[in-house]
Design a protein around this nucleic acid. Structure first.
Lengths: 128, 128
DNA sequence: CTGTATCCGTTTAGATACTG
DNA sequence: CAGTATCTAAACGGATACAG
């Protein structure tokens, strides 16, 4: 999708500065040690609280609750409480975070290219 | 590049677990408050130390040095020292980080969709 | 210019106990 | 099950001063 809000003849420096502000804002939305991992898990499917806790080795209840609350107030995650015994709380992504899937896919591609490049370098080293 | 190490008829859960390990590793590579922003700036062009410092409002010399050293030892950034007076140090991306550009572009797309969705919701709210 | 060293406050993290 | 509350320790981050 081309950007028709900006004159495409504008000097490159303007676009870079605008991009810088944008990317800072975007990065801020998922800054936090566990947020990307939480969002990635939720982009696969809905999770209950303890499901997330088990799925993320190393996270504590304390931090998981905190990060989930921040994601919720940023509109990145929807929290649904079922008033049952025992209690059930489900976490889902919102439309905003569903659109993060291409980002995760791009990260996958990068990660695999990086591993392949390293394997290639290792092979070169071994051959040399 | 398809994954031929795994039977493509394998249950979905296997792929998800494999993906989880991959994405954790990938996230770890640019975990750190300033790393994504540094990598994004360097993906545009080479920067000198103080250029980066000026370009990243809020970063301190301390943290910038630390994060650059970590990125360097992870092979994400190349550091070149010119033994001149005054000293000159240049930071460039490596091939590994050049391939992060699609990730940044995906983040841009997401960021703009998010803003557009919010503007749309605001318009809906106003119209209702 | 490009750092390093130090001090200090904030954030993160882990452990434990307790609640609806 | 899904949290909250509290305490403590460690890691992170920022300000300042100093150095090659």
């Amino acid at each position: 999708m081309p950007d028709h809000t900006v004159d495409s003849c504008a000097p490159h420096a303007d676009r870079v500065e605008e991009s810088h502000a944008e990317i800072r804002a975007a990065f801020g939305a998922f800054a936090g040690k566990w947020k990307l991992e939480i969002l990635w898990l939720l982009s696969q499917r809905m999770h209950r609280f303890n499901e997330l806790k088990r799925a993320i080795p190393g996270v504590t209840q304390h931090m998981l609750t905190q990060q989930l609350r921040e994601l919720e107030s940023d509109g990145m995650v929807r929290r649904t409480v079922y008033p049952e015994i025992p209690p059930r709380v489900e976490y889902e992504i919102t439309d905003d975070t569903l659109r993060l899937r291409p980002v995760f896919e791009a990260i996958f591609v990068w990660s695999r290219q990086r591993q392949a490049a390293r394997a290639g370098n290792d092979a070169d080293d071994a051959a040399a």
